[in-house]
Amino acid sequence: MQCSKTWIGLGALLMAALAAPAAMAQTVGFSQIGSESGWRAAETTLTRMQAEERGITLKFADAQQKQENQIKALRSFIAQDVDAILLAPVVATGWDSVLREAKEADIPVILLDRMVDAPEDLYLTAVGSDLVHEGRVAGQWLVETVGDKPCNIVELQGTTGSSPAIDRKAGFEQAIAGHENLKIIRSQTGDFTRAKGKEVMESFLKAENGGRNICALYAHNDDMAVGAIQAIKEAGLKPGQDILIVSIDAVPDIFLAMAAGEANATVELTPNMAGPAFDALEAYLKNGTVPPKFIQTESKLYTQNDDPAAVYEQKKNLGY
């Protein structure tokens, strides 16, 4: 009798032990767009790290910028019966049928970083950054830093027509609206690249009295700011002092510039989209908590006071 009870107890324990992993995600498939930018490489690195920390086996598929590869990867994840799928979609449209297949197989899908044009019930949630908010954070920093002093701003936009360029511009303009002393005097595209950022900044400097009319630079990404910093130095001005510099992304190189006092602030577009995604997944599988349809990542502001040299050391090995 006693003996059988123990066995039952053991059996129950065993059942519980077997059941527990079912409540926690064990295997997660991750379909990544590719590695077109340093940021995306860092996102991949951080997703692997986050999975490892949580004891999740990550099945990784690099789509090399092709949707058909992503759909293939998703189908193979479904066939392998993974516990969940992370998807960073390369384009917005054309996902309905494969997402439906995942739903029918009862596999929750979480979108990373980009959205899709599909009914909301086909995915569990989307983790991403609010681009308008990023621009707003950058603008607020400048408003607070400048105070009441008049300040002429030049803006290096991203690729014309791209959503980060449109949204980061809009957010920044919202933040400085109502502050008459802050004016955007020149705005031109730098195509998100260092070379164009430098070339366009050179022309800004020439056009604005050798740069003496310019009080601040707002760049839609750090790479353009890094290029612009070189142009400002070559013009004989001190970036970070003569011209304040605020940009977005928080890539490692901007922290080097900040440590050298040549850049003032950057707003982080965190590559850690997987952390919040895994948190939401865990809560969903454990307690059935349905997350909101969009989880906004933090747009953290870094300034020279945040020990940029140390942040650089943290970030430099993430694959940026």
Binding site: E36, S37, D191, T193, R194, A195, K196, K198, D223, V226, G227, Q230
Partner: peptide, 14 residues
């Protein structure tokens, strides 16, 4: 020249 100009090799955009 393009790489030396921006102090780095940008394979995506150079």
């Amino acid at each position: 020249i393009a790489a030396a100009d921006i102090r780095g090799a940008d394979a995506n955009n150079a």
